[in-house]
Amino acid sequence: MKKNLKMIAMAGFNLAVNTVAVMAASSSSQAAVSNTSMLGNNQGSTNTQVNSISMASIEKSFLEVPRMCKDRSAAFDPVPVGREEVPSQVVAIHLALDSAQGAVA
């Protein structure tokens, strides 16, 4: 169940970041819209522009998902790694089991 879930999660993260960025951009634009509206500018046309920018950005984010999934999948391809170095703190955690009190080996 897990690999796909991880890939989707990672893609979801990136998408969320993009979406948040779009929302932030929209908020700024809408704030600008409010200000310009107070000055008597054409709010309707500016809103249309904001909406089209948001939709385009969101659509672009969605279109990125397959590539992100593919990249994530490639990151999970088997690769020869040789002998990995194990930090001393990690070794100590493993070896602490040797002296743990408790049950039978």
């Binding site: 088997p78 990995e84 194990v86 930090p87 493993h94 070896l95």
Partner: peptide, 15 residues
């Protein structure tokens, strides 16, 4: 066995 997955070896109990 050769584990072709980076980051997994430190999780194995060495002994």
């Amino acid at each position: 066995i050769d584990l072709r997955f980076r980051g997994i070896q430190p999780l194995l109990h060495p002994r």
